[in-house]
Design a protein around this nucleic acid. Structure first.
Lengths: 340, 340
DNA sequence: AGTGAAATTGTTACCGTAAAAAAAAGATTT
DNA sequence: AAATCTTTTTTTTACGGTAACAATTTCACT
């Protein structure tokens, strides 16, 4: 009863042409007469012909789909980066398959295998926090499936990468704090293994150094992103003999927690203590006081990641050198820091 | 140079069997000798054989992929619903293709067609705010591709649906406000065409009625979700001769804006005015005061949507009646409302 | 008219899998 | 021992589109 799909063969029969001529008429630019092409295209239009992607895939051994593996789509940074990826990929006729590792190494491995099974042509990935071992991605390389890392990267792994200049972003932010008069600036860093955590920490240290401020180890704490842990760290920082007059956090979410605790202690932001985050989530301009933070070009990161992916995909034969693109950040000054 | 994929044919050759015997050995339950099956499975394991999904798709005319079309993945509600969808779909061996309409009707149509072209087996969709005309979804039905709507639905459209009991959710919230002593409760509703907006508005009215409170039309405003519009509405409400003592908003995002404006006016929350939102976004417990809101089981919504999808997919031949599942909400009482 | 080159179209094979049909081997019955 | 029925294995075919190659037509130029 169901109306079946119009196929290339069907078109060919009706036009008294061979299937390949029809195929060429629909795809090729020359090598086909104007008149035939028009006839074919017209009938195709009329019958609403739609090529069968499975058949195309099978023939070309290409799926025209890219795997996208992120820790969590609910994070606005990833959601935005995915939008960038989506736009660039769709524009090139590629579909994307979005998967979440939920920051679990095991899930990441499982999903990698699933994506491998579904034969994606490439993989765009931001590894989980837990991921130390990158063997599961090496499998892709072995099968000539390009892998592009973004946001979080591994120095040791072969592949194109898109990152943000975390170092400069952090340094600029901390220098701004110094310029507004802060002298005891604490840093709540992210989990130690994360590439961005190290970079931001280094940027923080560089800023202190360039202003000849001592780097007091008691002011630097790594957190595991859990609520309790952040809470403990902030409590400790506030109870130091000489209280910090600013806290630069690894990301905005940590900053929100810090702000709540600081306010609960009756301290004023920014008069008693300045707070600076990293990422510029939408929420950051909504809370009070609005958070000064380092904005990342999330959408652009996604676009560039796809661009680097196509560099690899387009030249399947030649060896294209891997590239690492570094995008710049922008300090967004709001009300959680003192005025210059 | 590149090692090519192990194919069924390859296995067959090595084992001196026909490809179809190998296929049966890997899939069928009986109709094959134990020993052969073991031999095949062992070699498949050894060579890391992975079936080619394109070939399978072509043969079965099934893509084992579901389209997921939402307004915006960056919204925590959708991100969470997608997680539920993802889990349920992957568990059943289906991939999902996530797309965003960005609340644009035109984009929604374009994406629908793209998903149609890529031959998804089913579509899970939450229509854009702009969408009034559902013709583009009818195309799916015509091709026997099930469509399941979630969150926002059209009464007139055929298909399974998953919604939340917006009516009860709103009524419970407003009744709670009344129980805490509020008497002039304003409602900032969503865009009029949205199904949930109407439902929540009706729930609000029902609550007033059951407590014999008058429904003052000046207290009910539809907003278009834009910042400016919300801002104007709140200004107007606060300048009424008799100021409202509570505002129930269509969703949390509106509530955040309302709170900021109310606080800026020097009014205290909840002493002078109570605020209740809808959705329970993660942010709602972070802001101050923490927002009282109606929680929706977003993850569950996703799971149920997939479940209804499979009801349709599994019985391709028989006509399975469409179903509408209604899930219950839960009032989360925090600090933006007075104590009971 | 004849030749060759260029332009256009047709033929064929194949991609990997699975359903259906056919064949072969083995077991059971008459 | 022949015939029938199982069981197991093999072959055939089809899915829809594409590319390589082959064949045909067109056309310009001797």
């Amino acid at each position: 009863m169901k109306k079946k799909q119009v196929t290339l063969l069907e078109l060919a029969k009706r036009l008294n042409l061979s299937p390949s001529t029809v195929s060429r008429a629909l795809n090729d630019r020359h090598r086909i007469s104007e008149s035939t092409r028009n006839r074919v295209k017209q009938l195709a239009e009329e019958l609403e012909y739609q090529p069968n992607p499975s058949a195309k895939s099978l023939r070309e051994s290409k799926t025209y789909s890219l795997g996208v593996l992120v820790p969590e789509i609910a994070h606005s940074f990833f959601a935005t980066a995915i939008s960038g990826i989506e736009k660039a990929a769709l524009a090139a006729g590629y579909n994307i398959m979005i998967c979440q590792s939920h920051e679990s190494y095991e899930r990441e491995k499982a999903i990698s295998n699933a994506l491998l099974s579904s034969r994606v042509d490439g993989l765009l990935v931001c590894p989980s926090r837990e991921t130390q071992d990158f063997k599961h991605f090496a499998t892709f390389i072995r099968k000539d499936i390009p892998v592009v890392f973004f946001d979080r990267i591994s120095m040791s792994f072969q592949g194109s990468k898109v990152v943000v200049n975390d170092f400069e972003g952090a340094r600029t932010a901390v220098e701004f704090l110094i310029q507004t008069g802060c002298r005891r600036i604490a840093h709540i860093a992210g989990p130690a293994p994360l590439s961005n955590s190290t970079e931001r920490l280094n940027g923080y240290l560089a800023a202190l150094e360039s202003y000849d401020l001592p780097d007091d180890e008691t002011l630097i704490r790594h957190c595991d992103m859990s609520r309790d842990n952040i809470s403990n760290i902030v409590e400790e920082l506030l109870q130091l003999p000489v209280r910090p007059d600013a806290i630069f956090t690894f990301n905005d979410n940590i900053a929100y927690d810090v702000m709540r605790i600081v306010k609960r202690k009756g301290l004023r932001i920014p008069e008693d203590i300045s707070i600076v985050g990293f990422s510029d989530q939408p929420l950051s301009e909504m809370i009070e006081p609005a958070l000064t933070t380092v904005a990342q070009p999330a959408y652009k990161i996604g676009e560039v990641a796809v661009q680097l992916m196509f560099e690899q995909l387009d030249n399947d034969d030649a060896e294209v050198p891997f590239r690492t693109e570094t995008l710049e950040t922008r300090l967004i000054v709001r009300d959680s820091t003192r005025k210059l």
